[in-house]
Write a protein that binds this DNA or RNA. Sequence first.
DNA 1: TTGTATGCGTTATCAT
DNA 2: ATGATAACGCATACAA
Lengths: 341, 341
Amino acid sequence: MPTIRQLAALAGVSHSTVSRALRDDPQIGEATRRRIQALAREYHYQPNRLAQGALSGASRLLGFISGDLSLPFGARLLRGIYDAAYGAGYQVLVTETWREMPRLLQAVHTLLAQRVQGMLIVHINPIPLPRQAVLEIISHNVAAVLLDHSRAERPLTRVCTDESALADLAVGYLHDLGHRHIAFVGPSIGAFRGERTAAIRQALTRRGLSSQYLVDWQTEAYHGFSAATTLARALAHRPCPTAIIGFEDRIAAALIQAAQARRLSVPRAVSIMGCANLNIAEFTAPPLTSIEQHPEEIGRRACRHVIARLTAPDPAGGDVPALIQVPPTLVIRDSCAAPAR
Amino acid sequence: MPTIRQLAALAGVSHSTVSRALRDDPQIGEATRRRIQALAREYHYQPNRLAQGALSGASRLLGFISGDLSLPFGARLLRGIYDAAYGAGYQVLVTETWREMPRLLQAVHTLLAQRVQGMLIVHINPIPLPRQAVLEIISHNVAAVLLDHSRAERPLTRVCTDESALADLAVGYLHDLGHRHIAFVGPSIGAFRGERTAAIRQALTRRGLSSQYLVDWQTEAYHGFSAATTLARALAHRPCPTAIIGFEDRIAAALIQAAQARRLSVPRAVSIMGCANLNIAEFTAPPLTSIEQHPEEIGRRACRHVIARLTAPDPAGGDVPALIQVPPTLVIRDSCAAPAR
DNA sequence: TTGTATGCGTTATCAT
DNA sequence: ATGATAACGCATACAA
């Protein structure tokens, strides 16, 4: 691949003429422009974006930091991010922390050294982001966004599912089906109670239903989680719940398995519902009714937000939203039905 | 973040002294070195990698091209790639083609313009890579590798599952369980017959089993695939197969559903096995016995190979392997059992 | 309309 | 041991 100077030599002009011709500068000879563009194509010339970035300071690079790259939800977020970045002519640099805090700091450093203009962070939920990382990012004046995180990180904008809408969708659907005793099952790590739990509770009370049916456990979502135990705890309530909402599909799928191990037919004896509409949802037996959170859309909006802030005239204005919410939708399959009377 | 010159001004030395101090140049004053390094830390100085790349030509950038970023298998490949890249100090630029050929060409262009030193491609299987893309990559002297692709693309190294080992694992396990009539179900798009089909056939004959039980369909894997029809075709063979291997977990999971719709108990009436050990495998009922292909390892090896070629003294040698194979392993769950006699 | 000169943030090669 | 200068590939202000 030639440099701009070599191409200029080939064309018998100066390199600045080539530069202008390729950028469709208005004040350039029509013939020259055509000739140079043809030559550029012939030799597969591509301007060196590294050099462009070094010169202008605008790298047109965005950084993606993931706690765990192999998560299907994260992969779909990345897809949305890439889609928006691609549309705006930005490139995405990918990074993983393996759920370790020191690695997160290092990822921030690395991306800063690459002069990314924005960062999109999918941290491990709901562990707080190290303060130092946040400070470093904002001190370097990089537009950063936190995706799919249930915990606010003060100056950073967060892009998430609209948890309130999700709860209304889930509770509303089951309520309309005739359920009056609805349990919610999810993790509650440390002192932190997820937004989702709170949203479900509100949705229940809004419909005049009891919100006593909350089952949680004091570890991370899947660590030491026992579907059998959890199911037993949920069904121990009186009156017995006729429907259970799992805070995520993997929990719900495990509950289905646990129910069937107890010879409880789903959805006849108990309805079970998931959240996230992961790829597993269509393969459980029965297929799992779930709430689609549209991770691609979350990624897309997050990325658009970052890019908008990059191109905004004055980013100092305090008009950056703290939270952008993406509405979820209901995906009806076969794991929920009217309760047996 | 300061530039090297600003830092030099702060330290009251020249920028070249700073550069040397940070790179631990042997001929630098111990005191000066310490002082400058402390200052660099204090001001969070990070050398601009764009400028470094522009100067040296070594961008330390790798490009990842995926046909579909949202695929769980691809996400795990990416994880392995990142792991190896991270270990060697390379960054990964991510790109997606949305399964469209023109976008693939464009992705190659873009990555070339970013001066990536290597490319890792997960193309849509088994569609051939456009010749033009391959030529462009090699003409720019970039080390490229094709991942998880069942079709050879001449000068490019391919990193894949060891299909022969996979077939032996699958057939061997079922055979040892007592099965004598084993069907294989998979797509065969156009004139292309997957390596997997061929490998299974060989494994069957190697064990003295009939390889007549092959069911395929003339479209892409999941496009227009009907589990019910496919299952009926498989079970129409005489003698009736007692076990079915699906070429991938999603196929196998759909077959389980289809079998149960026909009131055929799995694994009592028929054993069903998958490949890839996707996350869905643990949530089917019964949980799916499958073959783990270790996509992280595939990604890791592919990336290591690329980096090795980058740092090799002479990449012109014809000793680049055409194919690197990663051994799969068997994951036993509950969808396979001894055949009913 | 086109060419020349300067600068971006580095590293490397001269000096001193 | 340290400083001045050149160079990387590109864009652009200014000169012609």
